[in-house]
Design a binder for these strands. Structure first.
Lengths: 336, 336
DNA sequence: CTGTTAGCGCTTTCAC
DNA sequence: GTGAAAGCGCTAACAG
């Protein structure tokens, strides 16, 4: 039924080894022989079996990617960066959603390892003891992608979330804002949540503005939660003049909430966020935001992984990509 | 170095076959033996090698997914539906972006087949002769997902794009609109482009409205192209009173273009589209759209594929999922 | 309920 | 430049 390398060898009148050589572009084959083999391959419609090859060579040319949620625009962008580079180096990707749930993460890491991936790209919530444990049993390289890791032992690529948030809030402060609300992600989330919240606090402190916990609302990264948080701020006796949102989507929810209350952005309230997804320029007013280079985070981490898989030397195993403030129309200057 | 089933067998004092049985939950093992084996597995830190298993059993429990672009929200949603169901049936997914480029599509289909996937989900542009050819050499089931196929020979799941477009345009007509512009995708794209354009024309015809080619602009599905097309309509001597956009993103570009020209939606111009991505409710005014159930398209096609892979009988191999008009605020009634 | 024995289709020394 | 042969780690009859 299925045609194997053995069939090709017989058809071409050579040995299996020779067929293997031509299939793998090994130069030690006489051109005439090579031609005979190609013809036999063509005639028989031979297709190499990558599973058998994987067993024999102990390489599968596939890498595992654990991701929180591919339907989230931010992660989808990272995934595209990963896949493009993987493709460039002839790797394929096994993609697993794990929703930042620890149990699911550990489970998929193990099945990926069973599948003998040549490397692993981990994008998740925090890296816990149990994660470390699972990683330890892997004898393939692993890189953390947009995921923080206290231990700092595992190669990783990400932006500096704390400093991105700091920059965003400083932009507000430079524009004369003093009463600044924050729509945060959950503080359990080390990167998008905790770190960005810390950046907010540091910006306030460094500018001599007292931190007020009533000015912080926790959202779940979704549009609706941004609106809800904003409604809370609007209902306050003395409203903030500006809002820092941990993510674009919540910021857009906030903008619309402001508008639905008959107020203007940025005339009445300014809004800034971190992310700069494509949606940022798809709202009116367009959203001023600190840009997180998602595609690059994916691309760079995959590139790093290829180096690790080839056992090439890497000088920097923890890479922090630069972020960048994109000024659009959602921030007003209110200093006199 | 790596511990194999043989090591476990020796450690537990049983045969490889027995270890294999317990690992695969074969009931024909005495509980006491099972326990011994589990202990040995634990002690040795044994992890089954799925590649070896795949070679021996001729099943990899992985399916290939070719997708146009994972960073596109619409496809990412489909992908999530696919992955959830795959996961439920213990399959993993190898994800390949092919950008609707025929060459790339054929190439990834072949590498996926080499990797011995148990099935293939194809999401692409048109299915050409060459695609058919590649599919024919596969001896695993294939299902087309959100992809049209003239031949209708391959199992598929999608919505009826023509009728979805028809419904959208009829909604406009029912609201008194007669001069209706269309922002279309390329007519080379059978589903999102050509079929939706046909639906537009049929709605017009069935209502006795003459088709006017000046009222159709071709976009590339992106926000900016929606804006550009809209600017063209606004600059016309006699403007359309309503716009049908083939996709949400272009519709949002159109809405903002209208607003940027100092006009109101829907007071001056109504807008409707097909897709209903999450962005539809993230614009002001919120977008009225025909909803395409992307997640379900993914989920249903994966479910169909699992049936095919298990050689279960399927009554319906071409499934058309229902679409649904979601009325929000972007369409006004202008009949007196 | 358990063990023996062939492979699965390919790569990879090691000879020649 | 080419071939022979020994696995890679596991499953799947087939016995018993």
């Amino acid at each position: 039924m299925t045609v194997t390398i053995y069939d090709v060898a017989r058809e071409a009148g050579v040995s299996m080894a020779t067929v293997s050589r031509v299939v793998n572009n090994n130069p030690n084959v006489k051109p005439a022989t090579r031609k005979k083999v190609y013809e036999a391959i063509e005639r028989l419609g031979y297709r190499p079996n990558a599973v058998a090859r994987g067993l024999a060579s102990k390489k599968t040319t596939t890498v595992g990617v654990v991701i929180p949620d591919i339907s989230n625009a931010i992660f989808a962008e990272v995934a595209r960066g990963i896949e493009d580079i993987a493709n460039m180096y002839h790797y394929n990707i096994i993609l697993c959603n794990a929703d930042k749930k620890k149990d699911k993460e550990i489970r998929v890491i193990n099945t990926l390892l069973e599948k003998q991936v040549d490397g692993l790209l981990f994008m998740g919530g925090a890296v816990t003891e149990d994660h470390q444990q699972a990683f330890k049993t892997a004898n393939v390289p692993i890189v953390l992608c947009a995921t923080s890791d206290e231990s700092e032992e595992i190669p990783s690529v990400d932006i500096d979330h704390e400093s991105a948030a700091y920059d965003a809030v400083m932009k507000l402060i430079e524009n004369g804002h003093k009463r600044i609300g924050m729509i945060s992600g959950t503080l359990q989330d080390p990167a998008n949540g905790y770190a960005r919240f810390q950046g907010y606090k540091r910006a306030l402190e460094s500018s001599g503005i007292a931190y007020d916990e009533n000015l912080v609302r926790i959202g779940n990264y979704r549009y609706e939660s941004g609106s809800e948080a904003m409604q809370h701020f609007i209902d306050m006796e003395v409203r903030p003049s500006a809002i820092f949102s941990a993510t674009d989507e919540m910021a857009i929810g906030a903008i619309h909430c402001i508008q639905d209350n008959g107020l203007q952005v940025p005339e009445h309230i300014s809004v800034i966020s971190v992310d700069n997804s494509r949606m940022a320029s798809m709202v009116r007013p367009q959203l001023t935001a600190v840009a997180q280079p998602m595609y690059d985070i994916g691309a760079v981490s995959m590139r790093l992984l290829t180096k690790l898989m080839k056992k090439e030397h890497v000088e920097q195993s923890k890479v922090i990509l630069p972020h960048d403030l994109i000024s659009r129309q959602s921030v007003a200057n209110i200093s006199k």
